[in-house]
Design a protein around this nucleic acid. Structure first.
Lengths: 214, 214
DNA sequence: GTGCGATGTTACTTGCGGTAACAGGAGTCT
DNA sequence: AGACTCCTGTTACCGCAAGTAACATCGCAC
């Protein structure tokens, strides 16, 4: 029955949805992550209930918005990770891609890292667990997969790869966040330093002074 | 003039302040980071305005609360970092201390990682920069200092130490957060895996299949 | 007693997330 | 044509939390 009509409606709704997302994007870029639903609705030229009909609640809108940027960033990262180059080069290129992204659009980056924040409703199960931003988790899993596919690390490789994936992503994120705030060096230097860390330069370095235990 | 009286008042105020902080602590431990000022006041047996007189605003209270836990955790970490043992052992012990702490009190941990959240007021300068939790920053700086003091890494040691400090802290944090949610392995295994990563085991591992670039 | 500062309260404002309840507009069926 | 049904859009509201103003009270110096 009238599939064409339904498709038409669907397409219209999808277009609307995209328009709304773009408006939300503009507002978030301007006001930061605490952009209000009212502001977003106003920017889109409509009123709140429409937003709620499309996205359920604020979390839904934010999730949809985050998915867009996350997907885009992950695509860039995948390209750097999968490049046919030496490992060190790939690692540095991936780090640099990430850092360039957060450098270019810090607001978007901040928005992605500050997700849910919990609803106003008194319920709020407060589920211990999934704390950090979904973006970090996805990057971690993605990297874990690449590591497991491409690196031979003996038995228990899967678990090791996941630990390393999340750990490396966290390292990248924290160092990037700090760097973005203080700008103590160029991006290239930061990339080199982090890669050096992963290459065990800390472990290999000598002690500065012979402590009692040494 | 009347310094004694002033001191008395000061001490009384300080005691009150500590009591309030302990009440807030209990509530945050129960309700998570979105604990309301009303709830905290009720738990302390008083009403909101008193809280505001003592701490200014919600951010002030949260900052004071965070400082306590942060200081405590940092003390533990310092002990592990400064122990007279081999470097690998110290690193593992530090990682384990941190992970044990977040494992024991996940709510506190989560509270520490989700700071300001932005005030209700429409002002909110949205300062790009200082994004991540103060705890992470402080841990990063602390670790950087220890690295610089004890590790000989050639010239530019200061900058390198800071990058590594923040990077390692981020690695620890992200991996810990993920681990806390999924519990894919024991704490000891996680510690070993992370230390292995820092010791360059990823960089040293062989490729799984000869790709075009290899 | 009288003034003064700290402690405490009730009652309010503002702003946000979220939700009725209502008001057309376009196509569809009889 | 008229009734029926979606979809889109609105205004007006509820509940709740942050933050504040104005008032009450106790203890203490003078």
């Amino acid at each position: 029955m009238d599939t064409t009509q339904r498709t038409d409606q669907q397409r219209s709704a999808d277009r609307r949805r995209r328009e709304l997302l773009e408006a939300a994007d503009r507002v978030v870029l301007r006001d930061g992550p605490q952009a209000s639903m009212n502001a977003i609705a106003a920017e889109a030229g409509i009123t709140k209930p429409i937003l709620y009909r499309h996205f359920g609640d604020k979390g839904g809108l934010y999730a949809a918005l985050a998915k867009r940027h996350t997907d885009a960033l992950l695509d860039s990262l995948r390209a750097a990770l999968d490049a046919p180059a030496e490992r060190r080069e790939r690692v540095e290129s991936t780090l640099d891609t990430y850092l360039a992204a957060i450098e270019a659009r810090p607001q978007v980056y901040r928005f992605l890292m500050h997700p849910a924040e919990g609803g106003t409703g008194g319920d709020q199960g407060f589920d211990v667990g999934k704390h950090s931003a979904p973006l970090l988790r996805r990057m971690g899993e993605e990297l874990a997969q690449v590591i497991e596919e491409r690196v031979d690390v003996g038995p228990e490789s899967q678990q090791l790869a996941r630990v390393w994936g999340h750990g490396i992503v966290g390292m990248m994120h924290a160092a990037g966040d700090w760097w973005l705030g203080e700008r103590p060096c160029s991006r290239a230097e930061l990339v080199r330093s982090l890669a050096d860390l992963l290459w065990g330069r800390l472990a290999a370095a000598g002690d500065r002074m012979g402590g009692p235990g040494f």
